[in-house]
């Protein structure tokens, strides 16, 4: 759920013309090198930006700093883009950090999002298992988009669904993340899916 609007100290009307602009958030997930940042760039009307989230945490999992006792600070880079959709809406599209161990950042990312596009490279299907599992558990709407790399094996939809363990209700599409029409199709499919899910009777 999106957090509440804080309209503290609403200013005088001067310079406050028109309806408020609302943010729309979409998350792009998938394995390392699958094209997340490329998709962000295709959708964005500005050069993609990067924000650094400094995470201070007790050692997370096993990594190079695990021999250091106590707190460690990890910097997680998030790439994102922006696209003005119309008078009222502005889209922010965020790429998830590449490594699964930054799951703690994902909650922050996914909160309030329309949903996620999980990108899949058919040469490295297993790389998408982590993201798929995350969104399934979280109950967030997501679509799966195969980024069609030249030379990649062409699996049928049935083969892919089985290999990825996708439910019949999860949209599966194919495209090229460099192509705007492909990116648009992914966004439309995601919004349709999110809307269908909201309207459906919740599963028991």
């Amino acid at each position: 759920m999106p957090s509440a609007t804080s309209d503290t100290a609403r200013p005088p009307a001067a310079g406050d013309a028109g309806p408020a602009l609302l943010p729309v958030k979409v998350v792009v997930a998938g394995g390392f090198g699958v094209g997340k940042t490329t998709l962000v760039g295709t959708v964005s009307e500005i050069a993609p930006l990067r924000t650094e989230a400094a995470m201070t945490a007790l050692s997370v999992g096993v990594d190079d700093t695990s021999q250091v006792s106590g707190k460690t600070t990890t910097t997680v880079a998030l790439d994102f883009g922006r696209a003005r959709l119309n008078d009222r809406l502005v889209l922010y599209i965020f790429g998830t950090p590449g490594q699964d161990r930054f799951w703690f950042m994902w909650d922050d990312l996914v909160e309030g999002a329309v949903g996620a596009i999980v990108l899949v490279d058919t040469r490295r299907l297993a790389d998408s298992f982590g993201p798929l599992e995350y969104f399934e558990k979280k109950g967030s709407p997501f679509v799966v988009a195969v980024n069609e790399f030249a030379g990649a094996h062409d699996y049928s939809d049935e083969e892919l669904r089985e290999a990825l363990g996708l439910g019949a209700d999860v949209p599966l599409l194919r495209g090229d993340v460099r192509d705007r029409a492909s990116a648009k199709a992914m966004l439309v499919e995601l919004a349709q899916h999110a809307l269908r899910r909201r309207r459906a009777v919740p599963a028991p």
Binding site: V24, L85, R88, L91, V114, L187, V188, L190, A191
Partner: peptide
């Protein structure tokens, strides 16, 4: 909101 977003994506 989602309907509005869907509409906006269709015009993207």
């Amino acid at each position: 909101f989602l309907e509005e977003v869907l509409d906006a994506f269709r015009n993207f």
